[in-house]
Design a protein around this nucleic acid. Structure first.
Lengths: 238, 238
DNA sequence: GCATGTGAATTCATTCACAGCT
DNA sequence: AGCTGTGAATGAATTCACATGC
């Protein structure tokens, strides 16, 4: 579709990074590999085969190789992949080889939990700013970060170069927070409000809905129950 | 591949609920429809077409119809689907037409946030028990629920008929919590620890990793940056 | 000999397109 | 006329299988 393809044949064989489209599931699995490799590295593995990585995470070796090959050739035939190096490389791909300044909007139960979430810090997501509209909260300190007035969201995004904003406000106001953030130049949004946010396509929006995750569980439980139509364990129709 | 297929031809035409395999994405979309229908119902819609539902959620009408048809025929040709009824029916399918007794293990920042999470209560997920291993927390009250000693997990699961357990403990102890819960008869697990839990296949396990969600965002940001190799916004290599 | 990297084959998911009902 | 329900067609993701290279 791109005029580039015209000279595709002429490419040098040198690690030609063909921009194949990367699927969402591939990205998720990269995150999985990244964690698995940390564990394997800690266990003393220097080198790891797609086979070993796959068995650990209940995937197929071919899947692992396909996922990785979309970004380059990181392995050695006959040997496998160098654990440390591969992990670093995946970190680069996932964009966690750098630091990202992150703001959290909405310091309710969930918002405050996220401030203290260790994994974020560990991967270079630095919570630099907190916002709320509750006057009683504004000005108070949370893990070394002072809660700012949500009315200053735009200004602070610019001043502190916040690239990512986590939305942890009620559904009713989530879209307006999103609009403000986008207008101020935020590039990525992680949204915990249970609605679909509208944002320009160049802004990366990811919505996470914990109620849906539980529904996924209850769906399967309900399926089992109706299939087996047996033993009810602590649930009754309402 | 299954011997069943042998008599497939002989089925009666009567709404034979062919147990087609339901994909993960279909279940997720059912949750989406469920929420959309609540909104539409509130807006006064009595009847809704696959077209309308699809546009709202940025899907295709065919997708909506396929998803629903996997569970039966809920619409009327020429008209559409009855909003209220369809919502109720999807609720049934998702297993949220009943109440589920839920326990939360690990009352740290995330655990306490989940106790107060309104969406859970609204869909019939009743937080009936909390567990922690911190003696200072045990016995204290959280939203009307007393925190129990994690050593009583098995006993309480049985006594209170907890069907689902939410794991919000550090990765290092998540598997042992899982084992205890499974041994006590828990049927479903929502896991927030960043590891893959091993559990028998009849137990429904869903793992949610918030760091991975942020990685998904940073992946796309990193891709944009390398593609455009331009304007860095608040991030630098470390 | 062993394990990667990758086209080809397969399986799974989505979309098309239309018969069938209101 | 309008919209569902669903086989058929297309498209995407996964797996197979093997040539390639250490």
């Amino acid at each position: 579709m791109r005029s580039q393809s015209a000279h595709a044949e002429l490419e040098t064989g040198t690690a030609s990074l063909r921009r194949r489209r990367i699927s969402e599931s591939t990205v998720r699995r990269l995150s999985v590999y990244y964690r698995a490799l940390a564990a394997l590295d800690a266990e003393g593995y220097h080198t790891i085969s797609s086979q070993e990585l796959a068995t650990r995470e209940r995937l197929t070796p071919a899947q692992v190789r396909k996922d990785l090959s979309a970004f380059g050739s990181f392995g050695t035939r006959g040997l496998g992949y160098p654990a440390k190096e591969l992990r670093a490389r995946i970190g680069q791909i996932l964009g966690i080889d750098r630091e990202w300044n992150v703001g959290i909007v909405g310091v309710g139960h969930l918002g405050s939990a996220l401030v203290s979430y260790r994994e974020f810090q560990k991967q270079g997501f630095l919570i630099k700013a907190l916002f709320d509209n509750d006057q009683r909260k504004i000005g108070s300190n949370h893990k070394g970060v002072t809660i700012a007035d949500i009315r200053d969201l735009g200004a602070e995004i610019k001043k502190q170069h916040l690239a990512i904003v986590i939305i942890a406000v009620p559904a009713a106001v989530a879209q307006s927070v999103c609009d403000l953030a986008v207008a101020a130049g935020v590039k990525g949004i992680l949204n915990f409000a249970p609605i679909r946010l509208k944002a320009p396509s160049e802004v990366v929006v990811r919505t996470e809905n914990m109620a849906m995750e539980l529904e996924f569980v209850s769906f399967h439980l309900a399926q089992h129950l109706t299939r087996e139509s047996s033993a009810s364990l602590g649930n009754r129709p309402r």
